[in-house]
Nucleic acid binder design. Structure first.
Lengths: 215, 215
DNA sequence: AAATTGTTTTAGACTAGACTAAAAAATATT
DNA sequence: AATATTTTTTAGTCTAGTCTAAAACAATTT
């Protein structure tokens, strides 16, 4: 499988996680910052290889085979991210682009050894689940902070947006995975939140709250 | 720089280490298992980028810029090999192909952090020197076992041939980097060697002896 | 020095993956 | 239901890197 094929599979996989319906050509094109015509070409190729179900004008979905392949790419991506943060001391906002490269290294043995080396983690540094060698995923029950009620408490277990900007903002506010969070007040006017992070009280916007997962 | 460009640079670098004369198109083609015409095309491209000195029909050599680029690729290759053996517990005959992939990951920061993580090694698992971040190489004074006299003793510090077959042979004979070697006898008829490896006495062919570096 | 042999380059073709522009199909609007 | 708009596909072009076959050059032999 080529780099490009792998990137398409991964993108379709991520889009399918959001909406189960057939994924549109345009949605893929937008996410990959490419043109719809390029997507169509690739979809034909992937369909030829039985990695996607593709019917002209009706979008695609992954086949079983495609889904497994995609999960293996996600597995690699998240294991490498974990390696970079845990072992090489990168910060969580730096690792995405590197993992985008590393996820294409071809070797099952390597990734399984890396998995062992890291102690078979089930989550990456952003709180996302790492599929195991068989593609199985340990679901984490989590909730968006924005959907929680006043006075609820919990632990920050993940982020929805993983953009560098957002992650840097969290660092600045000293919000990290594992941080203890308590909802002190919800401001109905602008939907902002007054929360306590460990011992510190801060105000965060609705946008921030809707990108933080709490358990 | 593309993968392909990097592979050409690396190949030229390795060939230059053997003979300082201009490297021939054919030599490159053979080493890379490609055709001479493909090599010519690429040499033009590399010359355009001022990575090689190329004059039609007269072979190539690396420019300063090309040499540094090549060293950085070798640096990455050897650091990844070291990582695979030291941290992930691969054997020394398994790591080459993987490192061929990993050496193309683009990030200075990553490779420097990896270097630190490994404790800034100066040699890889085959005893080859690892260039530092500036391209500087710590020369190891070493000698081919085949060029040493009777009764000399030393430590195995490297291998010339790094093929999987050869390395597996060494494992079988329990010859490793750091092994204590003593030359007991040189057989003039077939140039074979009777040597002691640690406490064990064995006979090795001239071919084996001429691929082992001793200090 | 001419002829033969071997090496290197050129010319032209191919593939993967991307693109633009135009055509076709699907969806939305009146 | 007919039209307008949007989405998707097709057709054709481009680039990087490879290839084959033929031509040009270099080296060797006679």
């Amino acid at each position: 499988m080529t780099f490009s094929e792998e990137n398409y599979l991964k993108t379709i996989y991520h889009l399918m996680a959001v909406s189960d319906a057939g994924i549109s050509t345009n949605a893929i094109a937008e996410k990959m910052e490419t043109k719809a015509s390029s997507v169509t070409d690739m979809l034909k190729k992937l369909a030829e290889k039985e990695l996607v179900n593709y019917v002209k004008y009706q979008g695609v979905s992954l086949t079983e085979k495609g889904q497994l392949a995609a999960k293996m790419i996600v597995r690699k991506h998240r294991l490498w991210e974990t390696f970079l943060v845990e072992k090489l001391d990168f910060s969580w906002d730096e690792v995405h682009d590197l993992a985008e490269q590393l996820e294409h290294i071809k070797s099952e043995k390597l990734i399984n050894k890396l998995d062992d080396f890291l102690g078979n983690p089930t989550e990456d540094p952003h709180g996302d689940a790492i599929p195991d060698a068989n593609g199985r995923i340990t679901k984490i029950e989590k909730q968006l902070l924005s959907e929680m009620d006043k006075n609820r408490v919990g632990i920050c277990v993940g982020v929805k947006d993983t953009s560098s900007d957002f992650l840097k903002y969290l660092d600045k506010q000293e919000i990290a995975l594992g941080s203890h969070i308590e909802i002190i007040e919800k401001e109905s006017f602008d939907s902002s939140f007054r929360i306590r992070v460990e011992t510190k009280e801060i105000t965060i916007s609705h946008k921030i709250a809707s990108n933080l997962y709490i358990k």
